[in-house]
Design a protein around this nucleic acid. Structure first.
Length: 423
RNA sequence: GGAGAAAUGGCAGAGUGGUCGAAUGCGGCAGUCUUGAAAACUGUUGAGGGUCACACCUCCGGGGGUUCGAAUCCCUCUUUCUCCGCCA
């Protein structure tokens, strides 16, 4: 959520930058500023009336003490009108605040200057590429065929137990998945991230804090009996660790990493692109998250990108990095780098990580602040990224490491799997 | 699930109708002392709104109510603790 003073002082710049998202925010921003002015006017009015009743109350107290009961009772009469006014003004005030909040929830984060303009993923800007795409032998298979051939992932079984998009990993497939989780967590903790295990269901306040609510409600599974949401990413519970928190400047930076399953309804996305592991309702992910001093957040973002690069290099997977264009940028993000691994057998790129700087957008909702060197409370910057999303890494490994009659295991994973080949 | 107790500033912990935004301690910050540090001492130190700056307003778990006036009384919700029951 953007801050009203920021909007007020940088209106033109905000409009220009939101234009990269193909949004003309002029009207919305004008309304925000107008509503805020109205709100302040009502507030001032209300405050004055309250100040008057406060002083009358004090006087009544004093009169009672000195035994002047008649005078005190006479004063009581005076407060009736004030009370009426207070009530109606309070109602007006709340209406303004609600209208203002509702509007603010609809305005996405302001893209960073270097975000390219554009509408779709085709306008994303490739900023890095590493690894040669292997030339596969004749008859190489896509990962869902490989999964079946070696009996390591059973999609049909998941259909029976739950439904489409909930695969069952078996034998070496399950072990490889567990190996990846351990490997990722080890890499992250070695880089200074503190490992956490967080709840997989969150309440409304948490969903709101990270921006999934109210506008992406339909994308999360909702447990209505208890009004809880299954997490779509560890970002939600992990970032909400810091909701309503005032940090010392010396506490920064903070880095956390956590493994969780992720649940996504993915309503409406069906077809060839969701085959196999490409798009699931439940998948595993290891997340990294940072809380940073505003001055350092873009450094930190670069550091996170380098960290993910390092992991992919060790896995020896061909990948590229995209700087997302305005149209493809997430609602809460100011700058996002997507990592895509090349799925050789499908001849397409698969997103396996998304690393973002949210600047103060989440922190403002979360009320996550630190006391700066001037003693003022200032919003922190939050960042997060996947390191990494499991299914598509698995797909990449299966497809790129396949031979005629086996799948090799990347060297770095062998200590974790205990085997170097699936056959 | 049943019975009871509790929720106060960064933390701990007083405060049961008016002078309480709130004692005290710890922590933080500044200073004295010291070559430096520690200790000790002195001062200072909650958040949000509002203002050029003051004034002023709001906030004692959330919401509602009683009252001229609520941290304090009432209702309700949430959470925590103790006991009982159930249970991985």
């Amino acid at each position: 959520m953007l801050q009203v003073p920021f909007i007020r002082e940088n209106k033109d710049d905000v409009i220009a930058r939101l234009a990269k998202r193909n949004i003309d925010a002029t009207e919305m921003l004008d309304e925000v500023i107008a509503l805020d002015e109205e709100r302040r006017a009502i507030q001032t009015n209300l405050d004055n009336i309250k100040a008057e009743s406060n002083s009358i109350s004090k006087e009544i107290g004093n009169l009672f003490k000195s035994g002047e009961v008649d005078k005190a009772n006479a004063l009581k009469e005076k407060t009736g009108v004030l009370k009426e006014n207070t009530k109606s003004l309070e109602q007006e005030l709340n209406e303004k605040i609600d209208a203002l909040s509702e509007l603010l929830y609809k305005i996405p984060n302001v893209p960073n200057e270097i975000v390219p303009a554009g509408n779709t993923d085709e306008d994303n800007e490739e900023v890095y590429r590493e690894g040669d795409v292997p030339t596969l032998f004749e008859g190489a298979l896509p990962h869902w065929e490989l999964a079946k051939k070696y009996d390591i992932i059973d999609f049909e079984l998941g259909n029976k137990i739950t439904g489409a998009g909930f695969p069952v990993y078996k034998g070496k497939g399950a072990r490889l998945q567990r190996a990846l989780i351990s490997y990722f967590l080890d890499k992250n903790t070695a880089a200074g991230y503190t490992e956490v295990q967080v709840p997989h269901l969150v309440n409304e306040a948490s969903g709101f804090g990270t921006g999934q609510l109210p506008d992406k409600e339909g994308q999360m599974y909702h447990v209505t009996a208890d009004n809880l949401y299954l997490i779509p990413t560890a970002e939600v519970p992990a970032t909400n660790i810091f909701r309503d928190t005032l940090l010392n400047e010396s506490d920064l930076p903070i880095g956390l990493t956590g493994y969780t399953p992720c649940f996504r309804r993915e309503a409406g996305s069906y077809g060839a692109h969701v085959r196999g592991l490409n798009r699931l309702h439940q998948f595993d992910k290891v997340e990294i998250l940072r809380v940073e001093h505003p001055d350092n957040s873009y450094n930190a973002l670069d550091g996170m990108v380098d960290h993910v690069k390092d992991i992919l290099k060790e896995l020896k997977l061909p990948y590229r990095i995209l700087r997302l264009c305005g149209g493809d940028l997430g609602f809460t993000s100011a700058l996002t780098y997507d990592f895509e691994v090349f799925s050789t057998a499908q001849d397409r790129w698969l997103e396996i990580s998304s690393v973002s700087n949210f600047e103060t957008f989440q922190a403002n909702r979360l009320k996550l602040r630190f006391k700066n060197s001037d003693g003022k409370n200032e919003l922190c910057h939050t960042l997060n990224g996947s390191s990494l999303a499991l299914p598509r890494v698995l797909a990449g490994i299966l497809e790129n490491y396949q031979t005629e009659n086996s799948i090799k295991i990347p060297d770095v994973l062998v200590p974790y799997t205990g085997f170097d080949m699936i056959s």
